[in-house]
């Protein structure tokens, strides 16, 4: 009897998990259906070999190169993740091992609030405050750098809170044992705490990276949106998501379908990335 109800629970959980996994399948097929006419009219390879991105309702007169935007999306994401991850981990360490309890609580509350600020607000702030500052250094202002900064601010809370939660799950006796061994704080963190919470940290970084690559509104407002492969941090760029948001509102026919292709390619790229990460992880462990 006991085994049986545990079995029911397992099957129930499996059903729920399949439902959760089904969402992606639904979205995937939706994107595929919407982009099929572009694949048929324009062809797959023209999205990588056309001279530029000048979409048109009629596929024969337009050109549809997505490569600069794919690069743009990845540069911004990589920059933001590299900048935000150390800051977030340091923030979580601060909350857990360095700050007095009251300060830690306050700091945690600040980060929680900033996890929920709409991207429009960040974008607006970036446009009004950050972009003019960057322009002082190197015109025109809206740039890859501005995008990286804004995204860093946006994903820092996600990574920091996940890391913080992971730290609080580390059994107290690890800490007690480390202290009893006379370990310094840094040694304790490096040898016991961080390894014990690596799953939470990884999950945070993955969620942060996902948010970074999927972010639309804020990026649209600070990146300049010029379709070009950036040669430096101060060059304006356009990401795939910004491309969809900018042009979807007025796109019809093959142009609209081509925008769904950019969504589709983004999804495929993320899937490839996640799978590679998964394989690498499986090899290491």
């Amino acid at each position: 009897m006991k085994f049986n109800s545990d079995g029911i629970l397992l099957w129930l959980l499996r059903t729920v998990a399949v439902a959760a996994g089904g969402v992606l399948i639904l979205i995937f097929s939706f994107l595929l259906i919407e982009s099929i006419s572009a694949f048929r009219e324009i062809g797959f390879f023209r999205f990588f070999s056309d001279p530029s991105w000048h979409p048109n309702t009629n596929s024969n007169t337009g050109s549809y190169n997505l490569v600069p935007m794919i690069l743009g999306s990845f540069y911004v994401m990589l920059g933001a993740v590299f900048l935000a991850t150390p800051l977030a981990i340091l923030s979580a360490l601060f909350c857990h091992f360095y700050a007095p309890a009251a300060v830690a609580g306050f700091y945690r509350r600040i980060i929680e609030v900033f996890a929920g600020i709409p991207s429009v607000v960040y974008g607006f702030w970036g446009l009004v405050v950050l972009v003019p500052l960057i322009r002082e250094v190197q015109p025109p202002g809206p740039s890859l750098l501005a995008g990286i900064f804004i995204l860093t601010i946006m994903i820092l809370p996600t990574i920091a809170l996940m890391t913080d939660a992971a730290f609080s799950g580390v059994p107290k006796n690890y800490i007690v044992a480390a202290k009893a061994l006379g370990m310094r704080r840094w040694t304790m963190l490096r040898a016991a705490i961080i390894p014990a919470s690596r799953f939470g940290i990884t999950a945070g970084v993955i969620l942060g990276a996902g948010r970074a690559i999927g972010e639309t509104m804020a990026i649209l407002m600070v990146c300049g949106n010029v379709v070009q492969t950036p040669r430096g941090l101060f060059d304006p760029i356009r990401t795939l998501t910004a491309n969809i948001a900018l042009e979807m509102a007025y796109a019809t026919g093959d142009h609209r379908s081509a925008l769904f292709v950019s969504g589709f390619i983004l999804l495929v790229a993320i899937a490839a990335m996640v799978m590679v990460a998964d394989l690498v992880k499986a090899d290491v462990i």
């Binding site: 322009r135 015109p139 809206p142 649209l220 010029v226 356009r238």
Partner: peptide, 20 residues
Amino acid sequence: ADIIIGDNQHGIKTVIGNPD
């Protein structure tokens, strides 16, 4: 173009922040 924008307010904010 050096910058490409979407909405009117986006353009206005850009010009307010950039004398050139």
